[in-house]
């Protein structure tokens, strides 16, 4: 697979004190949709800032497209928006995009096409300062797509938007992903990442906790939700089973049973029935990305 970005042992220390990125390494391959997850202040934006040439790294290395191009030339093949849309407020949408074309050294031919894609073609002659936040964010996406980039980098693209705005941006991301563009999406909104990403990198306090596919992160043993007339007896019986790790009592008298080894629902049902327990409720569940993420980031 074609490598787009390689990050190796990247470190960033702000003001000699704040260690914002600690030894982060991962690779981005063509065609995948990546999510960078992490709570606020976990080093997501700093990591992106470094590879986008706006933050200086302290140590480590990164390479765009196998390091064949100097960073600023490589960035001409990248489309990126970080945190908030930055444009010249006194220029119109179209003028702003034309300026980006001049910087990226590409013809103006795509300007109208991309404005159309993000639904701003009717407002192309309006000044940027008259736009709502949602429109600004969509203009930023149009701008990032101007060069039909090899990779689209989005840092918190739905931050501060209203529900409609969030929906529009999310649909846009899905549309772009479906066209085969590689995407790197930094977010702390997990359902956002779960819905569009195939791979995730999880950061916390600048450290990388997980790097791999979303399915891989979710494919743990899962857990059961159980309920019977006598939960105390049920609990005692369950603890004798070799595959069971721990039990938590949660809302509505349900027991959450976490596993050590794989155990199918029918096997568990059979085991309990043989011990004389008849269940009212039996569901086998897998953690959602959110639960998985919280588990991962709450450890130690």
């Amino acid at each position: 697979m074609e490598t787009i970005l390689t990050i190796s042992n990247l470190n960033k220390i702000f003001n000699k004190r704040v260690h914002a990125v600690k030894n982060v390494s991962f690779e981005i391959y063509k065609g995948n949709v990546y999510g960078i997850l992490g709570p606020n202040g976990s080093g997501k934006s700093t990591t992106l800032g470094i590879v986008l040439n706006v933050v200086n790294k302290t140590s480590g290395d990164y390479k765009w497209f196998n390091g064949n191009l100097p960073t600023h030339d490589a960035l001409k093949k990248v489309g990126a928006i970080i945190e908030r849309p930055n444009f010249y407020p006194y220029m119109t949408a179209e003028e702003n995009l034309k300026l980006v074309c001049k910087i990226k050294e590409i013809p103006y031919s795509k300007v109208n096409e991309k404005l159309d894609l993000v639904g701003l073609i009717d407002r192309k002659d309006s000044k940027f300062r008259t736009f709502s936040l949602g429109m600004k964010q969509r203009l930023a996406i149009a701008s990032a797509l101007l060069n039909d980039p090899e990779i689209l980098i989005l840092d918190e693209p739905t931050n501060g938007l209203d529900p409609q705005g969030i929906r529009q941006i999310r649909d846009l991301i899905k549309l772009i992903a479906s066209q085969g563009t590689t995407i790197l999406l930094a977010s702390h909104l997990l359902d956002e990442v779960e819905k569009v990403c195939s791979h995730v990198v999880v950061l916390r306090y600048g450290e990388m906790l997980y790097h791999g596919s979303v399915d891989g992160m979710l494919s743990n043993e899962g857990f059961f939700e159980l309920k019977s007339d006598n939960n105390t007896h049920l609990k005692e019986t369950l603890l004798n089973h070799p595959s069971i790790d721990s039990i938590k009592e949660e809302e509505e008298d349900k027991l959450f049973v976490y596993l050590k080894d794989s155990l199918e629902a029918n096997e568990l049902n059979k085991y309990l029935f043989e011990k004389g327990i008849i269940l009212q409720h039996l569901v086998k569940r897998k953690n959602s990305l959110e639960e998985q993420f919280l588990q991962l980031t709450n450890k130690n």
């Binding site: 600023h72 490589a74 010249y88 980006v100 910087i103």
Partner: peptide, 15 residues
Amino acid sequence: TYGTLKQNLIDGMSK
């Protein structure tokens, strides 16, 4: 103030 310096660099202008 506009944050466009950042954006110019991201768009592929070198410092």
